[in-house]
Amino acid sequence: MTEYKLVVVGAGGVGKSALTIQLIQNHFVDEYDPTIEDSYRKQVVIDGETCLLDILDTAGQEEYSAMRDQYMRTGEGFLCVFAINNTKSFEDIHHYREQIKRVKDSEDVPMVLVGNKCDLPSRTVDTKQAQDLARSYGIPFIETSAKTRQGVDDAFYTLVREIRKHKEKMSKDGKKKKKKSKTKCVIM
């Protein structure tokens, strides 16, 4: 069974824990209790493949930012979460993405942009803004509501699919490099 290491990042209060708990335990946590770091595991079937999701729910508070490099190193894919009623959390996505790329030393890291709290009427981040940002990053965008469960499975499952595509691409690139290195030079 394939294991996928997913990391949920975003500013404090955007609903990272609520999304994760909704996926794992099928219930909505409405009281806000700032996370330092929590880890969850769940076995699911995605596109006919049974897999184990190892999900790291991270601290959004700035005082825990020193811990970010460590979990970013171990993560295979990242859910970059903002709240649709919090423009600052949307603007912060850029910083999370840049930090992930720096730590992973790669421009090509599996990510999904997630606009959470889409059940709320007080939207300050337009869907088109988020779609445009995701398009500019070359990553999928999904709106979710941890409260109603809308888009929750889709967000995590899409990230797994992005990781699969990335692994497939990397193995193809690896095979191309191996083929090239088999060419021999004969000096007579």
Rank of each mutant, 00 (worst) to 15 (best):
T2C: 08
T2L: 09
E3R: 02
E3M: 10
E3C: 04
Y4S: 12
Y4R: 12
Y4W: 04
K5T: 09
K5C: 02
K5P: 15
L6R: 00
L6F: 08
L6I: 14
V7K: 05
V7H: 15
V8T: 15
V8N: 03
V9E: 03
V9S: 04
V9A: 05
A11W: 10
G12H: 13
G13F: 11
G13W: 12
V14N: 12
V14H: 15
G15A: 00
K16P: 01
K16T: 02
S17N: 00
A18M: 03
A18V: 05
L19D: 15
L19I: 13
L19W: 03
T20N: 06
T20D: 04
T20H: 00
I21G: 03
I21P: 00
I21F: 03
Q22G: 08
L23M: 13
L23K: 14
L23H: 14
I24S: 09
Q25T: 15
H27D: 15
H27R: 02
H27F: 15
F28K: 00
F28C: 02
V29I: 09
E31L: 06
Y32S: 01
Y32D: 01
P34N: 01
P34R: 02
P34Q: 02
P34F: 02
P34E: 02
T35L: 00
T35Q: 00
T35G: 00
T35I: 00
T35P: 00
E37G: 00
D38V: 00
D38H: 00
S39R: 02
S39A: 04
K42N: 13
K42L: 05
K42M: 08
V44C: 12
V44F: 15
V44S: 10
V45K: 10
I46P: 14
I46R: 14
I46D: 10
D47F: 12
G48M: 06
G48H: 08
E49Y: 13
E49D: 09
T50E: 12
T50A: 09
L52G: 13
L53A: 08
D54V: 01
D54Y: 02
D54S: 02
I55Y: 01
I55R: 00
I55G: 00
L56P: 00
L56M: 14
D57M: 00
T58V: 03
T58N: 01
A59N: 04
G60W: 01
Q61E: 12
E62T: 08
E62R: 04
E63H: 08
E63N: 07
E63K: 06
E63Y: 03
E63F: 02
Y64R: 10
Y64P: 09
S65N: 03
S65M: 08
A66Y: 08
A66S: 10
A66V: 06
A66Q: 07
M67R: 04
M67G: 09
M67T: 08
R68P: 14
D69W: 05
D69S: 07
Q70C: 09
Q70Y: 12
Q70S: 13
Q70E: 11
Y71I: 13
Y71T: 11
M72E: 07
R73A: 14
R73F: 14
R73P: 14
T74S: 11
T74A: 12
G75A: 15
G75N: 03
E76S: 05
G77V: 12
G77E: 01
G77L: 10
G77H: 02
G77W: 04
L79A: 06
L79Y: 12
L79G: 00
C80R: 00
F82S: 11
A83G: 11
I84P: 14
N85I: 11
N86P: 04
N86R: 06
N86A: 10
T87P: 04
K88N: 10
K88S: 14
K88C: 06
K88W: 11
F90D: 11
E91Y: 03
D92W: 15
D92V: 03
H94R: 12
H95A: 15
Y96S: 05
Y96G: 02
E98S: 05
I100F: 06
I100N: 01
I100V: 12
I100M: 07
K101P: 01
K101G: 10
K101M: 09
R102N: 09
V103H: 10
V103G: 04
V103Y: 08
K104M: 14
D105A: 06
S106Q: 12
S106T: 11
S106R: 11
E107M: 12
D108Y: 07
V109K: 06
V112F: 04
V114E: 00
V114D: 00
G115Q: 10
G115W: 10
G115D: 03
G115V: 10
N116R: 01
N116S: 12
K117D: 14
C118G: 08
C118E: 06
C118R: 10
C118N: 11
C118T: 13
D119H: 13
D119W: 04
D119R: 14
L120A: 13
P121I: 08
P121C: 08
P121S: 10
P121L: 09
R123W: 04
R123Y: 08
T124P: 08
T124W: 06
T124H: 07
V125G: 09
V125Q: 09
V125R: 06
D126L: 06
D126R: 04
D126Y: 07
T127R: 05
T127Y: 06
T127G: 06
K128P: 05
Q129V: 07
Q129P: 13
Q129K: 14
A130R: 09
A130V: 08
A130H: 07
Q131P: 09
Q131L: 06
L133G: 04
L133T: 08
A134K: 02
A134I: 11
R135F: 10
R135H: 07
S136Y: 12
S136K: 09
S136R: 05
G138N: 06
G138M: 05
I139Q: 02
P140L: 02
F141M: 04
E143D: 10
T144Y: 04
T144L: 03
S145N: 13
S145K: 06
S145G: 15
A146I: 01
K147G: 15
G151M: 11
V152D: 09
D153W: 04
D154K: 06
A155E: 05
A155Q: 13
A155R: 02
F156S: 02
F156Y: 12
F156T: 05
Y157C: 10
Y157Q: 11
Y157R: 12
Y157W: 05
L159P: 02
L159A: 05
L159R: 01
L159V: 09
V160I: 10
V160S: 10
V160E: 11
R161H: 02
E162F: 03
I163C: 03
R164A: 12
R164D: 12
R164W: 06
K165L: 10
K165C: 04
H166N: 09
K167T: 09
E168Y: 14
E168P: 03
E168R: 08
K169I: 06
K169L: 07
K169V: 05
M170G: 10
M170R: 12
M170K: 05
S171M: 05
K172D: 07
K172R: 04
K172Y: 14
K172C: 14
D173L: 13
D173I: 07
G174V: 08
G174H: 01
G174Y: 02
K176G: 06
K177R: 06
K177P: 08
K178L: 06
K178R: 08
K179G: 04
K179E: 14
K180M: 07
K182S: 06
T183A: 08
T183S: 08
K184L: 02
K184E: 06
K184N: 05
C185Q: 15
C185W: 04
V186S: 14
V186L: 11
V186R: 09
I187C: 13
I187S: 12
I187A: 15
